[in-house]
Design a protein around this nucleic acid. Structure first.
Lengths: 332, 332
DNA sequence: TTGTAGGCGTTATCAA
DNA sequence: TTGATAACGCCTACAA
């Protein structure tokens, strides 16, 4: 690879001048600039990011930490992040942690070693203190799931509010026996908030709480079906199911169908996240849309604010929308 | 962040010695090593990868270039890559190109600038020559889709063979009017090979070729349904459909259902890729499993061979398996 | 407008 | 077994 020195030699100028041209500094004459630019193109020169970063202490690379790229929201969220990032000339790299703390740390070291400038964390195994410590030193933003105790900026949606809205729909429809099937990761803020809303509304109305939680390791769809069957067996008078995710909702529908009941006529089902799955299934699953693209964009903007030292909020709630499809009786 | 100099100062040794300790060189006395190690731990020192790489010209980071992380196979393939990579102490980063050449180049520059050591390419917009030129300089492996004309190593499956096998199943079942619905990216090697196999087998048997190709920009599921309806309208005697992907197969099933026909009784349908979608739909889609995890592992091993300068093959075909589910009459 | 020289944090070379 | 010093490729005062 050509270096700044070779360019300088061929152009008969100093490396400083070449550097100026590369960085579009104003203090270069048009003639010099053209001469240097021409040679740069001739030699197909690309600046060595390593060296640039070493000298400036900054890279234009940001990292997205995710549990797994098969994370349901992930693919559309990343588009939002990138949209914002590319506009501001950042490169976006993604890393999977698989929920393994050691691996998470390994990738976060890329921050310490200056390889990446900031990090969007969608999956975090750290305790609150360690996370805060990290945030003190580096630009960090949590996305969707976040640590309630840590004072570290996050972008998410108000799961509690959204879930109350969903429950209100059920109540307005006259449902009294409403089941809730939670994902098997009830430590996640999203699960906690959904459950809170579910319980609160039922309590306010004096209706019974009927819940099951998925076993974390199983294939959600099958497990959801099993759990729903157990619930429906024990409580044959259930008329509505609040599923923590679309996949779970589909499993629930399978269970309903296998009992020769109809969804939504006999039992109404609501999912969460508005994934493509909810379109593929029969009936199509009513669900809560998270506007993933917006979430991603917002997260990137918060990160950038940190990098550029401008103002930003610690708590950022993005909008959502209840989508009524075939698995629920249409809106009120 | 602490640097090697601070460590050296505190330990009363030279930076060279500290460097030796960090890199586990043999030429350090146990006493010195312990002393230095202790201070390293005390100060929570992490080497600056940028500097290391600048000095050595090597990073332990590899890059996976993908069109989009919503690429259907991607999530399980990446697990295979990582499995192999972590064992050999590499970090794996992922980047989306969205099929944009400029963006692809931007990420590939990370190779030139030594930020990453090698690259697994799952999506490439480059022409054969440019790709070959890249391969001359850097460790590169193509995964799944590959450029037939470029002499650049690839890991994929033998789509032609697999598709012939699939078609043989149809023929053995007595089907004569077999439709083929191709993805809207018929420049991809996978699409080309599937189509080749389809046409070859029909020609060998003197059966008619009946095909449609998806419009690239549309939502596959709906578009597949439409196209299937058109085909079934024009050729009501079609008894089998070879769909280029599971999603397309699901769309085909929808079309069949909407005509009050039964799958597989009236029309047998086969998909490709064995994605989760094929499990969610009714009927479950018979499909070709690609053993994604193995593919990923293999790709990483080829990349490593390049990095470590050991032998490897240019053409690597991984195994596959026809999976018979509900959308086809069970195996022969 | 241009150039010189020192520094970023590490490793490699050579000598001691 | 250790250390001094150049080198990696770039940026940025400071000087001219």
């Amino acid at each position: 690879m050509a270096t700044i020195y070779e360019i300088a030699a061929k152009a008969n100028v100093s490396v400083t001048t070449v550097s100026r041209v590369i960085n579009k500094s104003k203090n270069v004459s048009a003639t010099t600039r053209d001469k240097v630019t021409k040679i740069i193109n001739e030699l197909g020169y690309t600046p060595n990011i390593l060296s640039q970063s070493l000298a400036t202490g900054i890279t234009n690379v940001i990292l997205v930490l995710v549990h797994g790229v098969d994370n349901p929201f992930f693919s559309s969220i990343i588009k939002g992040i990138e949209d914002n990032a590319y506009q501001n000339n950042y490169k976006v790299l993604i890393a999977e942690t698989s929920g393994i703390l050691e691996r998470e740390d390994q990738y976060l070291e890329l921050l310490k070693t200056k390889l990446v400038t900031g990090c969007i964390i969608m999956s975090c195994e750290k305790n609150s203190k360690d996370l805060e410590a990290l945030y003190e030193k580096y630009p960090i933003v949590q996305l969707i799931e976040y640590d309630q105790k840590a004072k570290v900026p996050f972008v998410s949606i108000d799961y509690y509010k959204a879930s109350r809205e969903l429950m209100h729909h059920f109540i307005n429809k006259g449902h009294q026996k409403i089941a809730f099937i939670n994902a098997g990761e009830s430590v996640r803020i999203s699960s906690i908030k959904k459950y809170q809303a579910y319980v609160d509304i039922l309590t306010e109305n004096d209706f019974p709480v009927i819940t099951k939680e998925l076993e974390p390791t199983t294939f959600s769809l099958e497990n959801a079906k099993e759990l729903t069957l157990i619930l429906l067996n024990k409580h044959p008078d259930i008329t509505a199911i609040f599923a923590c995710s679309d996949i779970i909702a589909i499993g629930a529908c399978y269970a309903i169908e296998s009992l020769n009941k109809k969804c939504p006529d006999d039992i109404e089902v609501f999912g969460y996240d508005n994934l493509i799955y909810s379109e593929l299934s029969r009936p199509k699953i009513s669900t809560v849309d998270l506007k993933d693209f917006q979430l991603g964009k917002k997260a990137m903007s918060i990160l950038e604010a940190q990098i550029k030292n401008t103002d930003y909020d610690l708590e950022n709630y993005s909008s959502y929308q209840l989508i009524f499809k075939e698995s629920s009786n249409c809106k009120d």
